[in-house]
Design a protein around this nucleic acid. Sequence first.
DNA 1: CCAGACGTTGTT
DNA 2: GTCTGG
DNA 3: CCAGACGTTGTT
DNA 4: GTCTGG
Length: 200
Amino acid sequence: MLGKKRQGGLFLHCACAGDVIGALQGLCKAAAKMCGRTACTLAPDDVGKACEYQNKRGERKRPGWRDGDSDKYKPSYNKCPQSNSPVLLSLKHFQKDADSSERVLAAMRWGLIPSWFTETDPSKMQYNTSNCRSDTMAEKTLYKSSDEKGSTHGNGSRLLTMAGLFDCWEPPNGGEPLYSYTVITVDASKAMNWIHDRQV
DNA sequence: CCAGACGTTGTT
DNA sequence: GTCTGG
DNA sequence: CCAGACGTTGTT
DNA sequence: GTCTGG
């Protein structure tokens, strides 16, 4: 929606199996890769298939891509920050009258550009916003900003889903609105932190 | 009040 | 936009 | 996240 | 060491 603001809860879908295996084999070094790289190799149509869901009336639905977005997303085994990846979120973010249980796929830039960003070029963003820490995000100005919070939960056969935040930034000198997101990170579980224990 | 910041990860 | 520091 | 750039003077 | 680009 065009309408401004911000920060909806969302679900980013990325097939990360390749990275997970890499982490187990390569241990620490590959594990480190997880926060700044990912894999998302499904063709745009297959992402839709993999994200089928039931709406609140119990109907089985397959989310569609927002206009033009299926072309912005390029499948790769090595997706880096600043590239576009699929984000599954409530249709309500784009259509006010939509049922909030209906979902839609959008291609968004990995690395959140807040709506108040004033440079003309997103690459001028000097802070790393590809991840955001779950334990502090509520206190950070960059992620608090304005209004609503969305909520939903991901589903979908073999995809690894990750929660994130997104925003819509409009270039000061005009041009396409830029949707971008950040992935929420948490401490490693006990089962995994022998591979990688995050610094404080 | 205004000016300035606003972030994460892993040290390869 | 929203918060902090001075 | 990693890889690669980064600078000037005077020709080694 | 620090920044940029991908």
